[in-house]
Write a protein that binds this DNA or RNA. Sequence first.
RNA 1: GACUCAGUAGCUCAGUUGGUAGAGCACAUCCCUUUUAAGGAUGGGGUCCUGAGUUCGAACCUCAGCUGAGUCA
Length: 398
Amino acid sequence: METVVIGLSGGVDSSVAANILKEQGYNVIGLFMKNWHDTTGLLEGDCPAHDDVVFAQLVARKLNIPFHTVDLSKEYGKRVVDYMFAEYKKGRTPNPDVLCNREIKFDVFIDAARELGAEKVATGHYCRKDEFEKDGKTYYRLLAGADKNKDQSYFLCQLSQEQLKMAMFPIGEIEKPRVRKIASDLNLATAERKDSQGICFVGKVDLPTFLQQKLDTKPGVIIEIAKDAELFSKRLDMAYDENPKDEELRKIVRPYYYFPKNGEIVGQHNGAHFYTIGQRKGLNVGGKKEPLFVLSIDIEKNIVYTGQGHNHPGLNRRALFIRNDELHWIRPDLALGNSQEKELKVRIRYRQPLQKARLLKRESGLFILFKEKQRGITSGQFAAFYNGEELIGSGVIA
RNA sequence: GACUCAGUAGCUCAGUUGGUAGAGCACAUCCCUUUUAAGGAUGGGGUCCUGAGUUCGAACCUCAGCUGAGUCA
């Protein structure tokens, strides 16, 4: 009987996942991890994370499986939270949960699970996995969850074959309403619990407040760039099917760089690094016909550039770039070689409908050209590439 | 110095031949969502520049004043 350690979070998904494993005949062990103790900037009054361990334990008892806890907060702080602050400081917008999966749930957590005798590790993610042989070698595939609405494969876009090999996703084949139903049929304490939100283990925080722990406030100006600003008309654009030269690729992939003379001052902010591209709320600038969105932040000069309306040219871009050292293939056998190209589906944020795109690999990195212009392409976020249902790679947007 | 125009929610403005006010943006809350965002719903908020007058009744009419913008000398 194979031993599987399931990460019990105190939510429904992992509860039901544990039950499914049990029914499938595995030797199941529940392991709860506590990764964060601070509550700075936490929203929602009381701290719901405090109850999580209690719920996890209740579920383990109900399912009659051993229950353990582990404190990985030191590693979490070092490998996820520090990265977060560092990225924001650089003016990028990180995705801590993608890192959390790569560095914690499918790394140090696996180590902890192994100490309990785990041969496999399971989580309550909505995604699927399968495997196949090629040239005598086993390859693992990360697939979207059967519940299209809940598919969480995006958050696992940085996993390796090694990590995938150990992983099991018991609820990947079923839909959320069914998960709820199973939980309530089993009378699990977590059946009615609200889905968790916010940063994994940290919770729903007010970002500026949270970031102020380590990042200083610094007053600066908000500048509005008109829709018809000259720099937009000078911008290179190209048809999706065109065959671009390398030089054109480099141009089209570049974010817009603004200067104060390109627009006019419309307000004040407390630190450009507290904002992200595409953001609308929190600018505190009124008197406009259409809402103002952040187009760009300049960390050096501490300026937030904004533009009016969803269709602002500065907000919608055709292409993005991923550096070689920030490019990751879940399926190394499908990695594009330099000068190779492939049409795939890409998403640049969780739950975004997949977008048709051309991936062009060059010596300097990977260029992604979208069929439709994309809103809020943001440096530091992850672009994930799908071949049908399968997530084959990802990278950090430069 | 004269004249013209303007002064209405935090901002930009609309408004009824006179019956005590609205829209967009901003903001708040909730929903959605294991990132950042976006999106959806709901909501709070106004001595209608000040004073006097006309009127049953004025933010809308009259007069004076204050403030701002502009034009002409």
